[in-house]
Structures are given as structure tokens and as C-alpha cells.
């Protein structure tokens, strides 16, 4: 992982599929400098999120134990991450499913399968559209 300077985006990735985790990690590292924390379950992410202090959270929807929306709701209850933008990653991309996720307050929804080389760009452009994310950067570096 990259060093924690605060200038490099900190990404918390919650995904229960190991292969997808690995591909995401390689893709992100290949395309830019990021600080990445990967968690294999919602429970683990809830436990580690506050300490990690992410700029953005990539959250899988269908997971073995807690599902994405549940984890999302839990994040909203943790003061340190309650306003960190969340991008869902899901294979369920029917319009109503996407609408549902967006209505929870997600920043964006990335459809699986995703283009690994375009992933970071997608995340960055979503963050650019979200002013809250920029405002959060000092908070992260303060951690």
C-alpha cells in the first residue's frame, strides 16, 4: 500500500470475492497512486472504516453476510465516515435496482463487469461531481 500522505486518495474497498478484490487492487495500482484498504465483509469494513478514514468507499452489493445497503446504513451511523461518498459496485444493474441504490444516497453505481483500466477514472469523475468529497480531504489528512 501507498504511504499515508493525505494527497493520495484513500479508497476503502469492500468485496467478498477474492478474485475481484485482487483485480481491483491491481487495476487501481496500475492506473494511479491510491491508498487502498480492502475488506472481505461488511462487518470487517465497519470495524476498520473509522481508523482508515477513506476518501471514498467502493461497496459491493451482494455479499455473503451483510449486504451492501446494510453496510451503507451502518457507515452512516459512524461519525468518521458518515459523509464519505459511497460508490456501489454491483452486477444487478437493472434500472430499478440502480435507482434504489442511488436513492439510498450513493454517489454512483459501477456496473460489474467493469473495465479495470477505467475504474480509477470512473471513481475520480464521480468524486469530481461530488463537492462533499473535496471538502472531506482535510478531514482525512487530519486523521
Amino acid at each position: 500500500m501507498n504511504d499515508n500522505t493525505g494527497h493520495i486518495p484513500r479508497i476503502l474497498h469492500v468485496e467478498d470475492d477474492q478474485d475481484t478484490r485482487e483485480i481491483t487492487a491491481i487495476a487501481l495500482e496500475l492506473t494511479g497512486a491510491v491508498t487502498l484498504l480492502q475488506c472481505t465483509s461488511g462487518e470487517e469494513a465497519i470495524e476498520k472504516a473509522a481508523a482508515f478514514g477513506p476518501d471514498v468507499i467502493l461497496l459491493d452489493v451482494m455479499m455473503q453476510t451483510m449486504h451492501g445497503p446494510e453496510v451503507f446504513a451502518a457507515f452512516r451511523q459512524i461519525p468518521e465516515v458518515s459523509d464519505v461518498p459511497v460508490i456501489f459496485m454491483t452486477g444487478r444493474v437493472q434500472q430499478n435496482e440502480v435507482n434504489e441504490l442511488m436513492s439510498l444516497g450513493a454517489l454512483s453505481v459501477i456496473a460489474k463487469p467493469f473495465e479495470p483500466l477505467e475504474l480509477l477514472g470512473t471513481i475520480e469523475s464521480a468524486l469530481r461531481r461530488a463537492p462533499a468529497a473535496k471538502e472531506r480531504v482535510p478531514a482525512v489528512s487530519a486523521c
Binding site: 470475492d17 478474485d19 475481484t20 483485480i23 481491483t24 491491481i26 487495476a27 496500475l30 452486477g91 460489474k112 463487469p113 467493469f114 473495465e115 479495470p116 483500466l117
Partner: peptide
């Protein structure tokens, strides 16, 4: 899910 991995791995 598996397609994501396959496609991702090959793309990389």
C-alpha cells in the same frame, strides 16, 4: 462475478 474476474484479469 466470475465474468468480472475473467474479464478484469484478461484486460489487465
Amino acid at each position: 462475478s466470475p465474468i468480472t474476474s475473467i474479464k478484469g484479469a484478461l484486460g489487465l
